[in-house]
Amino acid sequence: MSLIVLFVLIGTPLLLTLTALSLARVRVATGEEWKWVRLMWAAAVLIGGVVAWLLQRGLDLGRGSMLAPAILGVSVVAGVGLGETVVRPRRPAGPRTASLVTRHVTDYLPRGLTAVVVAIAAVHLVTLALTTATASADDMGRAGRQVAAQCGDTGSAASPYPGSFYSGPLTVLLVVVGIATLAALMAVVRRPRGLAPDEVGDDVLRRWSTTRVLAAAGAALAASHAGIAFFAGTALLRMDCQRAWMELVGWALVASVPVALLLLGWLLGRILTPGALPVVRPEKSVEAR
């Protein structure tokens, strides 16, 4: 039953998003090099999947599974960034033009998507800070793997709970995702023109790539939050002895899980079908011989 629910929560918004964005998608003529860029995306995702699988098998007590979404997210981000850094457009023969307009990352970021990703990041980091601060060692002495409370002469504990045992490596990996996202966005915006026949088409490709990068980072955060919130929330709610804050926080965390899954489906849709035509900015060119 849980797999069916997961499929509905992720599959339904993903299907609707793909359908809507496919209808609105702008068709852009691309150069031959764009195929190599896309091949690098696919190669990076494949490598990320292999690394995630190896970590899932190599790390014990669920830490590998917890890191898998972030590994896949950083692989998509790295694939886009490397694809538009390594693949260089061929320079046209004869006189060429050089744009005098400075491109900025903020010119290509979708505002709604950016706001969603920032919100997910904030909620996820607050959740990790809370679980890290309230966790304790389990019965085997592993620090930060359970939550415990004392009520008079009785006590209660529950695990697994995403304290430092889980949040430590995850936070490090999320920092890597953030750095890779910034680097990829800069690579996309600063790459030379030439992946599309004209400047408008090239601008569209930049916006599509920045959308993919941002959506991949957001998907990694959403999937990671869904797992962390589920285990933290259920651990808090099944304790017989609770502190005053535990029940309220537990229900809030559990309630955030379907929201994160719905956002994950939408973000996956943005990765696969990244968007529409951007606003065309007026540019002045100078002839270079």
Results as ranks from 00 to 15, higher is better:
residue 285 S to P: 01
residue 275 G to I: 06
residue 118 V to P: 04
residue 145 R to E: 01
residue 127 T to A: 11
residue 270 R to P: 01
residue 165 F to P: 02
residue 270 R to F: 04
residue 192 P to F: 11
residue 71 I to W: 03
residue 197 P to E: 10
residue 21 L to D: 11
residue 269 G to I: 08
residue 158 A to T: 11
residue 3 L to D: 15
residue 149 A to D: 03
residue 83 G to C: 13
residue 289 R to E: 04
residue 226 A to V: 03
residue 69 P to M: 01
residue 163 G to S: 00
residue 76 V to R: 02
residue 175 V to D: 01
residue 278 P to V: 10
residue 233 G to T: 09
residue 199 E to A: 15
residue 187 A to F: 07
residue 123 V to D: 06
residue 128 L to M: 15
residue 43 A to H: 06
residue 37 V to M: 04
residue 185 L to K: 01
residue 275 G to L: 08
residue 268 L to G: 13
residue 130 L to P: 00
residue 180 A to W: 00
residue 275 G to P: 05
residue 279 V to Q: 13
residue 272 L to Q: 06
residue 159 S to A: 15
residue 93 A to H: 12
residue 278 P to F: 09
residue 157 A to F: 12
residue 121 A to K: 07
residue 254 V to D: 06
residue 118 V to R: 14
residue 232 A to R: 02
residue 276 A to M: 12
residue 36 W to G: 15
residue 236 L to K: 00
residue 147 V to T: 12
residue 27 R to W: 05
residue 31 G to P: 07
residue 257 V to W: 05
residue 28 V to F: 06
residue 260 A to I: 03
residue 153 D to Q: 14
residue 256 S to V: 10
residue 244 A to K: 06
residue 18 L to G: 14
residue 12 T to N: 06
residue 71 I to V: 15
residue 267 L to P: 03
residue 215 A to G: 05
residue 254 V to N: 07
residue 54 L to Y: 08
residue 243 R to S: 13
residue 248 L to H: 09
residue 44 A to L: 09
residue 125 L to F: 13
residue 234 T to P: 01
residue 265 G to E: 07
residue 143 A to N: 08
residue 15 L to A: 15
residue 182 L to D: 02
residue 95 P to H: 11
residue 28 V to E: 06
residue 46 L to N: 05
residue 277 L to A: 14
residue 54 L to I: 13
residue 102 T to E: 14
residue 15 L to R: 11
residue 281 R to L: 15
residue 2 S to G: 14
residue 140 M to G: 06
residue 221 L to Y: 00
residue 146 Q to K: 11
residue 116 V to Y: 03
residue 78 A to K: 08
residue 184 A to L: 04
residue 129 A to N: 02
residue 233 G to A: 11
residue 119 A to I: 12
residue 2 S to P: 04
residue 171 T to K: 10
residue 87 V to N: 04
residue 169 P to F: 02
residue 274 P to W: 05
residue 255 A to E: 06
residue 81 G to Q: 07
residue 100 L to W: 04
residue 33 E to G: 06
residue 97 T to F: 14
residue 124 H to I: 02
residue 279 V to M: 08
residue 86 V to Y: 13
residue 134 T to C: 02
residue 40 M to Y: 02
residue 238 R to M: 10
residue 213 V to N: 02
residue 271 I to H: 04
